[in-house]
Write a protein that binds this DNA or RNA. Structure first.
Length: 736
DNA sequence: CGAAAGGCTCTTTTT
DNA sequence: GAGCCTTTCG
């Protein structure tokens, strides 16, 4: 600390408000009481406005920190906001409730859920747990998973919960056979969770809403407490979230919502864009502020994005502008296939870095589906270019991490039968199916949870001595660790657990990935050590809670330098100087699942808009002529979104009419470089008239053979399945 | 009992 | 291609 007071320390937030904010931002920050709707376009300083407003409210004495509730979309956003408010106020913002809807819901339910019969030590089931639970129910009901995919059932149950439907209500509304089945499963799924003292993600929201509705006294306390409520990313709220906010804000009506209807991209999980579009109807006295000045991108990028988004019907009219006039044109480039696409990205990335203007961490590669990252990764690995892959198999979804977490959850909550099943034979305790069936039957017969059955294992008949000893050992281990959890720091509990179950040795014998797996376990232990400051029992509880609600983007910043590989969904809220968007093709982006659904297409368009507006300086849009999907080669048409971008904004081959073939297109320089780097290797082997034998399609005759850069492409008419396009290097065919 | 092999399906996005 | 499940074999 400097001995003389620094100007910053003396600069109260209200001064900043006057000098460093543009007029609409200032209006939003200093808006008085009552409902306030802020349309915050991409890069318009949204977080700044939110944090300044919170600081301003406190500064002005309108609210104490403890009277403010700020809800964000990710933990990362919450953390950022807290840090920035603290900086502004030069004091702790500890009293402020800040977090995701799910975290806030969990917190409320821990404190007051008992009124609604919710045990305050509930565990939170993630997507995988929920799937396992559904599978278990389907097993009990002897439902064939082939006919009714468990994943689809999970989605349907989740949809019902989004609509706050009870199992009975869902059954009454079931309109299709699948929905009928799903509601039957839901009917058993929910009690299963209750027996396990578990809540799934949807419950964290839905049960909170129900708590508020059934217990006005509880609601009243929270209403009283939160004088000001601020909600970020309001366009992505679903019904339970909407109701949570509505209930909480009903008393003081000091509700500030920030959002951008153009960036609503979570319809598939129940987000309802109408929540933001009808805010003014919900609150006729609402003040409305539009933030349209963008501080991120060049005008060229904004214009291109605007032309893509403006085709949407259901949106509030607005247009971003920036003082960064001009800027390089958008590069639209077609490559032959996804390998060439990846090569082109790598080449261009290297070129930009070599010029000295950018470092790799300024660059991001965006794609619609996680599967697309693979081709890029392969190229980057081969070139030795560092990258960070966001998403995919998440840390908390790795088997070894889930194993340990299941143990910890079972320690925190002996009734968690799903975790019990997961760890009972991990590491191997030589317990066979027979033993587990016996134990299960004993538990059912005495209406016990598996854990309670284990406590009485000596009463069980027909158990081999070996199995009995194994079960008893398992029980004693857990008891010992559970006792430790009551009195020792969490990290020691984890260490004790690992030692007692011999997990390291087990992993070491598990194959080539042993080192990486063990490293993950150690990382988990490291995370646990951050909770050592808390009282022993609480540390475990808090740790499990945070872990359950944690996502991959949350730890994005701590990763080492390199190119960022990320889906368009997860990139929302982030920005990069250079952005490559891959796979701008019909069927991929927009995704095939959306093609026949206008609302789905509008969402795809918003998704494209989100991706494009992440770029500060340069934007590249790639599409391929041919792409492999699930092993098959597809010939792809350029995305309709590309055609919406005016030609004068584009360098390369935009404005393509649908169906134009790849040949004859002027390739961008990146493509040239990629081609130079990967010489032609194939020799022609087929001619029209040749007969071929395909592994699954049988016989056919070759109509046409085209030699491409890296491969030979055949059009074959099969006797049984008709015309197909094949790549010689991939297709399981033989010349006859 | 457990490992290995084979066969099957399903592939959008995820707090 | 990959993960998941079942079957088979040692």
């Amino acid at each position: 600390m400097a001995s003389t007071p620094s100007p910053v320390a003396e600069t109260a937030p209200h001064l900043d408000v006057l000098t460093t904010l543009n007029p609409p931002q200032r209006a939003a920050v200093t808006a008085g009481d009552g409902p306030l709707l802020i349309f915050a376009g991409a890069g318009s300083g949204k977080t700044r406005v939110l944090t300044y407003r919170i600081a301003w409210l406190i500064e002005q004495g309108r609210a104490r920190p403890g009277e403010i509730l700020a809800v964000t979309f990710t933990n990362k956003a919450a953390r950022e906001m807290r840090t920035r408010v603290e900086q502004l106020l030069q004091l702790g913002a500890t009293g402020i409730w800040m977090g995701t809807f799910h975290a806030i819901g969990a917190r409320i339910l821990r404190r007051d859920g008992s009124a609604a019969g919710i045990d305050r030590h509930f565990v939170i089931y993630d997507e995988a747990d929920r799937l396992a639970a559904v599978k278990r129910v389907m097993d009990e009901l002897h439902l064939d998973e082939k006919r009714y995919p468990a994943g689809g059932i999970v989605t349907l149950i989740s949809r019902a919960k989004d609509e706050l439907l009870s199992p009975a209500e869902a059954a009454a509304r079931a309109a299709t056979p699948v929905e009928e089945v799903a509601s039957q499963i839901y009917m058993r799924y929910q009690p299963l969770l209750e027996r396990n003292r578990a809540l799934d993600f949807d419950d964290l929201l839905g049960r909170t809403v129900r708590l508020f509705q059934d217990h006005p006294d509880v609601l009243e306390r929270y209403q009283q407490r939160f004088k000001y409520i601020l909600v970020d990313e309001y366009q992505d709220t679903n019904k339970p979230q909407y109701l949570m906010v509505t209930h909480l804000a009903a008393k003081h009506r000091n509700l500030t919502v920030v959002g951008d209807d153009d960036q609503s991209i979570y319809r598939f999980r129940g987000a309802d864009i109408r929540n933001i579009l009808s805010f003014e109807r919900d609150y006729p006295d609402a003040q409305v502020v539009k933030l349209e000045q963008n501080y991120r991108s060049t005008q060229a990028i904004l214009d291109a994005a605007h032309h893509v988004i403006k085709a949407n019907a259901s949106r509030v009219a607005k247009r971003l502008w920036t003082e960064r006039q001009g800027g390089p044109k958008i590069v639209v480039a077609q490559t032959y296939d996804e390998q060439e696409e990846a090569l082109a990205v790598a080449q261009e990335a290297l070129r930009l870095v070599a010029q000295g203007d950018y470092s790799l961490s300024d660059l991001a590669v965006l794609y619609r589906t996680n599967a697309q990252s693979r081709a890029v990764e392969e190229v980057l690995l081969r070139r030795g270019l560092p990258y960070k892959l966001i998403g995919g198999l998440r840390f908390y979804e790795r088997r070894e991490v889930k194993d340990i977490l299941a143990y910890l959850r079972l320690i925190a909550n002996p009734d968690d039968t799903l975790s019990f099943s997961r760890v009972i034979n991990v590491p191997r305790r030589k317990l066979g199916e027979k033993t587990l069936v016996l134990l299960g039957a004993f538990a059912d017969g005495h209406e016990l949870t598996p854990w309670a059955a284990l406590e009485r294992v000596s009463e069980m008949a027909g158990l081999p001595g070996q199995a009995l000893r194994s079960l008893e050992e398992f029980r004693e281990t857990l008891k010992e660790v559970r006792a430790a959890a009551q009195e020792r720091p969490l990290v020691e509990v984890v260490e004790l657990l690992l030692t007692r179950i011999g997990y390291e040795r087990y992993l070491r014998e598990s194959g080539p990935e042993a080192d990486e797996r063990w490293a993950n376990v150690l990382e988990l232990r490291g995370l646990a050590s951050e909770y050592d400051g808390l009282a022993p029992g609480e540390g475990l509880q808090a740790f499990l809670e945070d872990v359950a609600l944690m996502s991959d983007v949350d730890s994005l910043d701590e990763r080492p330098q390199g190119l960022t590989l990320i889906t368009v969904h997860m990139v929302k809220g982030l920005e990069f100087r250079v952005v490559f968007i891959l796979g701008m093709e019909e069927g991929l982006f927009p995704h095939s699942r959306s093609l026949d659904d206008p609302a789905g297409l509008e969402e795809e368009r918003r998704l494209a808009y989100v991706g494009m507006t992440r770029a500060k300086d340069r934007l590249y849009l790639f599409h391929t002529f041919r792409r492999h999907l699930y092993g098959n080669a597809n010939l792809n048409i350029p995305s309709r979104f590309l055609k919406d971008i005016p030609v004068e904004l584009v360098e390369g081959s935009a404005g393509l009419p649908a169906g134009v073939p790849a040949s004859g297109m002027a390739p961008a320089r990146a493509i040239e470089a990629a081609r130079a780097a990967a010489p032609l290797t194939v020799v022609q082997r087929y001619a029209p008239g040749d007969t071929v034998e395909h592994k699954s399609w049988g016989r056919g005759s070759v109509l046409k053979s085209t030699l491409t850069r890296t491969d030979e492409e055949l059009i074959v008419k099969f006797d049984r399945v008709g015309m197909k396009i094949l790549a010689v290097s991939l297709a399981p065919i033989k010349k006859v």
